[in-house]
Amino acid sequence: MTIEWLKFRVSPDSRERFVQVDAELWTPFLSQYPGFISKEVWISPDDLSEVVQVIYWETFEQWQAIPAEALDRVETQFAEAMGDVYELLESKRYQVRKRN
């Protein structure tokens, strides 16, 4: 299993809208592709500007097989819906070594 880990800075006033629009656009888009398992969205009670997304994929290859032009199209829709209130701070990849 491969984990896609994304950390965003979001205007605190826009955080809930960010989570909502993400659920409306990104999650259905990703879930249509083979290898998508699930997605979690974490918000910090201590830092209202922080949003972390954890996306579970069966394999790295399946995740990377999503066409770049399709990703760009959804990102454009998301950016148009949200405006300039968020910034991607970190993007990481992990592998699940052990799960209990």
Rank of each mutant, 00 (worst) to 15 (best):
M1H: 10
T2W: 10
W5G: 03
W5D: 00
K7P: 00
F8S: 02
R9T: 04
V10F: 04
V10D: 05
V10R: 05
S11D: 15
P12A: 09
S14Y: 13
E16A: 10
E16I: 00
R17N: 13
R17M: 08
F18H: 12
F18M: 07
F18K: 10
F18A: 09
V19A: 12
V21H: 10
V21K: 14
A23P: 03
E24D: 12
E24C: 00
E24Q: 14
E24A: 12
L25K: 05
F29A: 09
F29M: 08
L30G: 10
L30F: 14
S31H: 09
S31Q: 14
Q32Y: 07
Y33E: 07
P34S: 12
F36S: 02
I37S: 05
S38K: 13
V41D: 02
W42N: 01
I43W: 03
I43M: 14
I43R: 15
P45A: 10
P45Y: 04
P45M: 01
D46T: 14
D46R: 15
D47Y: 07
V51D: 11
Q53D: 01
Q53I: 03
Q53P: 01
Q53R: 04
Y56I: 02
Y56T: 08
T59F: 12
F60D: 03
E61Q: 14
E61I: 00
Q62I: 02
W63E: 05
Q64L: 15
A65R: 08
A65D: 11
P67K: 04
P67G: 07
A68Y: 04
L71R: 14
D72T: 00
D72H: 09
Q77G: 01
F78K: 02
F78P: 04
A79R: 15
A81E: 13
M82Q: 06
D84A: 13
V85P: 07
Y86E: 00
E87V: 09
L89E: 12
E90F: 03
S91A: 13
S91H: 13
S91G: 10
K92D: 04
K92S: 03
Y94S: 07
Q95G: 10
Q95H: 09
Q95T: 12
K98W: 13
N100L: 11
